[in-house]
Design a protein around this nucleic acid. Structure first.
Lengths: 335, 335
DNA sequence: TTGTATGCGTTATCAA
DNA sequence: TTGATAACGCATACAA
């Protein structure tokens, strides 16, 4: 297929490439010319060659999105929010999966830089920021989403995980539980630390002594979720309630409970994290902390667009979005 | 950030841009020059400007992926397969969501063409092919995934849905059921037609008369799934078993069953489609037809890569992947 | 406001 | 094998 160029348009409209180019970029053009150019463009089915334009302008109208794991509900919903927003601003998304691997993250980030993206939205694998600082130092806008990075000055949009976890645990306490376990995530991940802190703060505020044996830490995986739940349930003095601090962990923990033939709320009280696709299929439905997933994506995208336009005000900006909690009979009322 | 160019490399390595370019494209270069060029590249942290290269070669090493709905397990897993394969071949993915809307599909397809992608993988919204034929006629490779299109000569990779549905229904019949309902999808979608056909064939082969009142057709949505199940359960003479022919429909149907407080297998026999993330959390686990999701993505990607390399042999190639069925106690044994 | 000419970084053609 | 150079399609500085 041979595409029409700006030259063809100029010829057909009896103007010059300069005029056509100016028309295309929204400059003022005599209305007679404008009309003829528009006709020619329609006639030739012309569209701008983004490569040529990019070569001149050093802009690609493309944003790189790097996610540690595509295959999960949460990531996808965040992505949808971004896709929509960036689409509205005329940006395309190049999407990559870092497969929860910091080396892949480095590599893909380099790939994106080489592909000349105008900006990057990153959900980082873990607390490691040197390679990101490199990008920022080179003037490439980066917005973190879901997770911040210690000692890295970078824009970000995250959920208020401390508060989400706090309210979950406070709810459990208010229903009369004293022995409350937590399945926490890997402590080199921002959200995992925050959620553990929320748990600890709630216990402290309600004067409940922390029992270290009730704090299980694992990766953000299904396996760690079931492993953690097995561990807690196998304790000599098991907790009466468990707070599980991530999507995959929640699925895994529920699997362990179901596997043991136990009933939520009756045999073990349970508070999970993130909306399960099938939350209504489980009896009773599961109490969870729900994040503003779409907003997370939208706001990250909007912030990035602002940066790409050259507005660097307030750097680093961090948005912290409120979470909601859904409380059900999966947490038994002891009082 | 100011990127080094091939010119800088030529200067530093005391060769010419021609030689450097040839080196970069794998042609033969005297080994002394090769060494000096490699040093210079490292020294300057040079990487090829894909815009300039694309402008010359008319290739972007980018593939457009258009999916009717990002936010579902099935799509994502297919996408992961594609991402991995295309990554191996040095292609980036531009991912778009057509939001189950044929106009959006048209629009995004145009956008991708304008962005000069080298090829497109499309999961079409429905049975409409003119806009796709346009692309093919213009020499842009397109591979359909999951769904073919009537009267459109186009490469594709799909599951053998007829067979999947057939075996599901045959399994139900072999467990002694005679009154078997189906929640079918929209008949302008390839997979929906195929799965309905599988159902009908199985009934025919086992000499069971088709009762039209047991055939419910709806969109591929959760709402249609629960609506369909409500309808079937509300019949004067309801079916003893129901085959549900899509992921969303399955979720919706299960929701209706759970909502009525009925138990799978005991009160109603059930066979769904696609792996639910939480299939193990439901008691009893649900019988489903499972597709080779990753393979679907991989093979579509591989086929597209072949086409983009210029190998047009066998067009149109259609791969039809086998499905598996998972059979559980959700289908009651009547005999 | 318009037309002309130059350059963005690469590949490909040509002569050496 | 190499170097010099034209071209890819566009945006922009400059002169008009």
């Amino acid at each position: 297929m041979v595409m029409a160029t700006i030259k063809d348009v100029a010829r057909l409209s009896q103007t010059s490439v300069g005029t056509v180019s100016r028309y295309l970029n929204g400059h003022h053009v005599k209305s007679a010319n404008r009309a003829r150019i528009e006709d020619a463009i329609r006639e030739l089915d012309f569209s701008i060659n983004p490569l040529a334009r990019g070569l001149r302008t050093n802009k690609t109208k493309t944003v790189g999105v790097l996610i540690p794991e595509l295959a999960n509900n949460f990531s996808i919903q965040v992505m949808e929010g971004m896709e929509q927003t960036l689409d509205e601003h005329g940006y395309s998304l190049i999407i990559c999966d870092s497969r929860n691997n910091i080396d892949t993250e480095r590599e893909k980030l380099k790939l994106m830089r080489d592909k000349l993206v105008d900006g990057i939205i990153l959900m980082p694998v873990r607390d490691e920021g040197d390679h990101i600082r490199d990008l920022l130092d080179n003037g490439l806008p980066v917005v973190l989403v879901d997770r911040l990075i210690t000692n890295l000055s970078c824009d970000g949009v995250v959920s208020d995980s401390v508060n989400g976890a706090y309210r979950a645990v406070a709810t459990i306490i208010n229903r009369g539980h004293k022995r409350i376990g937590i399945i926490a995530g890997p402590q080199n991940v921002y959200t995992a630390r925050e959620r553990l802190e929320g748990y600890l703060r709630a216990l402290k505020d309600y004067n409940i002594q922390v029992d270290e044996s009730l704090v299980y830490k694992g990766d953000y995986t299904l396996a760690a979720g079931s492993g953690g739940m097995e561990y807690l349930l196998g304790l000599e003095d098991p907790p009466s309630a468990v707070f599980v601090s991530n999507y995959h962990l929640t699925l895994g923990a529920l699997k362990a409970i179901t596997g043991r033939g136990m009933t939520l709320g009756a045999d073990i009280s349970f508070f999970g994290y993130d909306q399960l696709e099938c939350s209504e299929l489980i009896k009773p439905p599961v109490s969870v902390v729900v994040q503003a997933v779409e907003a997370l994506g939208r706001q990250a995208a909007e912030l990035l667009v602002r940066r790409m336009k050259g507005d660097l005000s307030g750097f680093p900006v961090v948005h912290r979005l409120k979470t909601e909690i859904v409380v059900t009979d999966s947490v038994k009322k002891l009082i």
